[in-house]
Every structure is written in structure tokens, then in C-alpha cells.
Design a protein around this nucleic acid. Sequence first.
DNA 1: GTCTATAGCTGGATAGAC
DNA 2: GTCTATCCAGCTATAGAC
Lengths: 204, 204
Amino acid sequence: MSIFGKLSFKDQAFKLREDAILDATTGVLASKGFDLMTMDDVANLIGISKPSLYKHFKSKEDLVGAAMIRLLEGANEQLGKLPDEMGPRDKLAALLEWALRVRLEGGLPFLPSTSNAVREMLMRNLSYVAKVLKLNSQLEKLVQQAQKLGELNPEMPTDVILYSYYARTCDPAVDYLQRFSKMGKEEIISQMLRVCFEGLCKNS
Amino acid sequence: MSIFGKLSFKDQAFKLREDAILDATTGVLASKGFDLMTMDDVANLIGISKPSLYKHFKSKEDLVGAAMIRLLEGANEQLGKLPDEMGPRDKLAALLEWALRVRLEGGLPFLPSTSNAVREMLMRNLSYVAKVLKLNSQLEKLVQQAQKLGELNPEMPTDVILYSYYARTCDPAVDYLQRFSKMGKEEIISQMLRVCFEGLCKNS
DNA sequence: GTCTATAGCTGGATAGAC
DNA sequence: GTCTATCCAGCTATAGAC
């Protein structure tokens, strides 16, 4: 952020390295989860030593928080890209599709569905909380609009829809399908979208 | 299992103590998850020392496996209780309802949705795997029957339905509703059942 | 800034007395 | 079988040399 052109190289390099660290963190988190991820895992994966890692992020909590924040920023950006003429339900579907694709390509699930402790840890990260709240209010509005238009069930409480929507972004069925079925990524995504909106009953 | 009446008292007492240990294990697992659960947690909760705990279960993996096995046995028993005249879809709904009620009352989620490592650990427990396979084959049959009858979407792959069904038993939306909504247990259960079978769209 | 080395702690598992 | 006391591995985080 220097006003001198000279330093922006350094800043850029710094940013690149941080991005590489966050990539590695994301990968380890996706495969082992927070509790089993060690700082050595991350450091070794990018070929630096643990103390160097601590120069960039002052704690494990801080590091994981940064990875989650980057994910939320991606979601936010994705949401902003959607054309204005798109209906609210289609916007929700498109964002879910994006989240599932990220996961299927080795990224993180949107929410730490897993553990209470992880959730609480993230909630102590004010920067993370701010981004969650921002995204949440956008999504809540979309759900309400969709309900008014009859695109989503108007008789269902908004929070039931919203939380169930979040839950689909980290649905374990995705992992099972990826492991035990012959389906490809895109087919898994389209099936999950269908299950989410239509349920298990509907005859098409 | 002695053939002498005398010893059955001892056996019964032993069984009771093991049940108490498994209750405690279940409670700790439900609140902290596998990785953060310590043997001290369990031992302290029932007022015995760690070595005593190890007399009953030879490792943490063994202990958690036993708790999961007891849960699966409960599910199996529940399934067996359902009247024969009940349709396959209603049976699936009734079992899901039971699983959600167990969870809302502080029990364990059906699947270890969370972690890869936990799943692999359980898969090394042959007794657990046997029970999973047995339950799975029953549920798969029910899904197929329901699809034939048109009670569940016949055009959807059976494994998509089955895995999504499993996923609903550990749906994080339940936790969020319990924490952030004013809904009671029974209302949460009925809403989750509706979301599962009807999806987020359907107008009732 | 990067490393090697290590402090400090926690938690699984066990030895050995009673 | 129950305990106290302890071992040992692995992890977060840091000290201190270069």
C-alpha cells in the first residue's frame, strides 16, 4: 500500500507469498480439517520453515481465519458478478453451484459445519464476522425476495431456508458421491442443486 | 454371558458401567467432536480415573467405535419396530425423525459428517463396518422401493437420494436453528423433514 | 527474514502400588 | 479393578544465530 512505486514490487511479492500460504492452508484444511492441521503441514507444503510462517501469520487461528476470509471474499465477488436481471432464486442457485465447484476442486466448504470449537474460534475473528454478516444479509434478502415471488416456498420460515441453504454448501453427500459413485463433478453439482431445491420426492 | 446365574449379576453391573461410559462418551463427542475429546473428559465426567477407563476400552478409537456401534444398533432397532404396513417413504421419514430427535436431545449425529480421519478410523473397526453395511442395505432397499412407487423421485440416481438422506441426519442447519431461532425441537424436526423431502421450492 | 533448536504443554497410554 | 504417578509423542509458539 506504499505511495512509492518502488515498494509496490515488494508488496506484490509479499501478497503473492501470502496467497501461496493461504492456498496451502486451504488444501490442508480441506483434507484434514482444523484440529488435525499442523503449522508444519503448511510450512512443509510450501517449503518454508515454521518460524517463517509465523512471520506472516501470528497464530494458527489467525492463519485459518485469513483463509476463511479469502473464501468469503470470493463468494462475495461471485455474488456481485451475477447479472441484475437474474431472479433471486437463480442467484442463490448460481452461488451454491460456485461453492460446490470450489469444494469439488479441493477447496474449503463454505462453513465449518464440523466443529463447535472452530466456529467459536472464527467468531472471535472480528474481520471474519464482519464479512459473514455482510454476506448473510445479502443472502437473507435474496431468500425473502424469492419467497415473495413464489420461487421459494413462502410458507417456510426464512431462517429454515437460509440455514438449509448454507448446509448444502458443505453437504457430506458431495464427498460420498465423489468417492463412491461414478459421477463426474458437473453431474454431482447438478444433482445436488436439484436435491436442494426440489427435495427427494418431486417427480420432474 | 456365563451359564451360571451367579455371575450374571456381575455381568449386568459391568454392562451398566459400560453403558454409563458410553453415555458420557456420547455427550462429549456431541459437544466437542472426536479430535477435541480427551480420555480425561470422559473419565472425569463419570468420576473414574483414566486407567480405569482403559480397563474397559483399550483405546480412544475403541471407545468411540463402541459408542457409534450402540447408536447404529439403536437405529436398527428403531427400523425394526416400524409396522409392516408402513410405506417405504414413511419408514425413511420415521427413521430420520428418530435420528434428528436423538441429536436434538444431545446425542450423536448418525454419521461422522465432519472428518475424513474419523471416517477412516471407524472403517478400521470391523464390527462397526458390519453394522453400517447392514443398515445401509436396508435403507437402500427402502429407497428403491419408494422410487418404484413414485414416493421418491424415480429419475434421481438411488445413491444421490441415499447419501442425501444420510446427510440430513447430520445437517448443520439443525444446530443453527436450535441456536438462533425460537423454534422448539418438534418444530425443527418437522421443518427439516419437509426440507428433506420437498426441498426449498415447493409451495404446499 | 530465514533457519535450527527448543521451550512448554497437552493428551494417549501404561507401570506399579494397593 | 482402582488409583497416583509417569512416560512419550506431537504440537504451538518462540529464542537466538546468521
